[in-house]
Design a binder for these strands. Structure first.
Length: 472
DNA sequence: TTTTGAGTTGTTCGA
DNA sequence: GTCGAACAACTCAAA
């Protein structure tokens, strides 16, 4: 009797531990053939691409330790899987599920194709704490408000148990296959920029686990109050690791739950992981979230069209320090602190009155953690058009936000060095300096740092009027 | 079916 | 400086 070979198709689950598909598959076959496909039909941003390349490299290295490797392909997923099962005597093809419209359609199609070919095909949850269809409110539909969603989800999770370590060793396929494989390298434009981003991160499963461990040990006990401070590193920075599945959300949930940290900080952090699930709950039940406002009245919102101010926003040249610092952090690291994401989002959609899609696209391209669900839900939330969105009058004042969450100006100075010259008092609003002040500190407003491209108070009023115009 | 209370992350104004 | 009210009306979730 010939040995059974099963394919595990890696997608956003680039890890060997806590990987349900891998674990189940290894129990049903004699060896696992681990594959990755660069699917040309799936949209991916630039920053994500460079993280992905590195992450695949790390995964391949882990497989090398087990005397196997990652079998990489490029092209149409269905076609490639078809070629693999024709070429090798494959009995199973397993993977972990995704939740956006395009992936769901593709995966369903591939699954029925496999079943027609008499291949065992099974899919699992390796990406979310709880999958959208398992959380319903009492009237049987999906939750549109976070708090009750999380309450329900949390109750479900308390009953789940996660094993400490996978009990059985997985045997990976080691031989050559007669198919055209693709190299691990991706063609990445703007290599210099991308390398700068990469220099800030340790990528891969091992690094993700270490990061979680250190976060729980050193930072979690200050998370509740610290999480809003971009000037100090208080957050876990696990977002990209979670996005690529280098660590499972269940592992994060369970390790944080089991830590001996005060309950309040723990709850705050867990609920942030809950937001990730909530975004996917919205994306799954309302796939149009990436394009259309959840509140349909926003279809007639009077967005402006102004390519110049979009450029200034992207480049971090708006003249508002906390906004510019955030955009520079994004360009430097491929990542931005969550509090600052809200501030730059509010500035774009409310002060500049530009459509949230502008921001969503830019974030999708430049964030290493760019994630369809979280990105769309986040932008809809900040622009006011989302489910459970902020009330129309909640327009962030970037000066106040700066003073509150970056009180010494350390964050803005880090990304805008010219602000080192001026005292804390002006660091979040340099335009308030008089000519004498500027002389005193040898700071030339308009030259050392741009004047604000809009008047904050005027544009606030303009945004309020715009909201009023759609609220009949 | 109807009713009731609540809803992520804010700001401004005036006492 | 501090504090509470006002800022719309609407939708959601649960009793």
């Amino acid at each position: 009797m010939s040995k059974k070979i099963g394919v595990h198709w890696f997608r956003l689950d680039l890890r060997l531990n806590d990987n349900p598909s891998l674990e189940k598959l290894s129990k049903e076959v004699d060896s696992v053939l681990p594959i990755y496909i660069f699917d040309e039909n799936i949209k991916i941003g630039q920053a994500s691409k460079c993280w992905l390349e590195k992450s695949l490299e790390k995964l391949n290295a882990e497989l090398n330790k087990l005397e196997s490797k990652l079998y990489v392909f490029k092209g149409d997923s269905k076609k490639i899987i078809g070629e693999i099962i024709n070429n090798k005597n494959i009995s199973h093809v397993f993977w972990n599920r995704l939740y956006d419209k395009k992936s769901i359609k593709r995966d369903k199609d591939i699954k029925s194709f496999l079943i027609n070919k008499s291949i065992v095909s099974n899919t699992f949850n390796g990406y979310l704490l709880t999958e959208p269809w398992n959380i319903k409110n009492k009237s049987g539909s999906f939750f549109k408000v976070f708090t009750p969603f999380w309450k329900t989800n949390f109750e479900l999770l308390k009953e789940k148990k996660l094993k400490k370590k996978s009990s059985s060793k997985i045997l990976f396929y080691k031989k050559k296959i007669n198919l055209k494989e693709h190299s691990l390298k991706i063609n990445i434009p703007r290599k210099k920029w991308m390398n700068k981003i990469l220099s800030h991160w340790d990528i891969g499963e091992q690094s993700a686990q270490l990061r979680l461990k250190n976060f729980i040990k050193n930072k979690l006990n200050n998370y509740g109050s610290g999480r809003d401070r971009p000037d100090i590193e208080f957050t876990s920075r696990l977002s990209a690791h979670l996005h690529f599945g280098e660590i499972s959300p269940m592992r994060v949930f369970s390790d944080v739950m089991n830590s001996k940290i005060d309950g309040d900080n723990k709850q705050k952090y867990l609920s942030e992981i809950g937001w990730r699930d909530f975004s996917y709950n919205l994306l799954f039940n309302y796939p149009e979230i990436t394009e259309l406002p959840i509140q349909s009245k926003f279809l007639k919102f009077p967005w402006l069209k102004d390519s110049n101010s979009i450029k200034q926003w992207k480049a971090g040249k708006t003249g508002v320090p906390i906004v510019d610092a955030g955009m520079k952090e994004l360009y430097e690291m491929g990542w931005m602190h969550n509090r600052v994401r809200m501030i730059v989002g509010s500035f774009l959609t409310k002060n500049l009155l530009l459509h949230w899609k502008n921001g969503e696209n830019w974030f999708f391209d430049t964030l290493v953690d760019a994630d369809i669900g979280s990105n769309a839900a986040g932008w809809q939330w900040i622009s006011g058009s989302g489910a459970d969105a902020s009330p129309y009058f909640r327009i962030f004042n970037p000066i106040l936000q700066g003073k509150k969450f970056d009180p010494k100006g350390d964050y803005v100075r880090k990304y805008i060095p010219s602000l080192n010259k001026i005292p804390d008092k002006f660091v979040h609003s340099p335009w308030e300096m008089s000519v004498d002040d500027q002389k005193k500190y040898n700071f030339n407003l308009g030259k050392d740092y741009p004047l604000p491209i809009v008047d904050l108070s005027e544009t606030r009023k303009r945004a309020l009027a715009a909201f009023k115009s759609i609220s009949e």
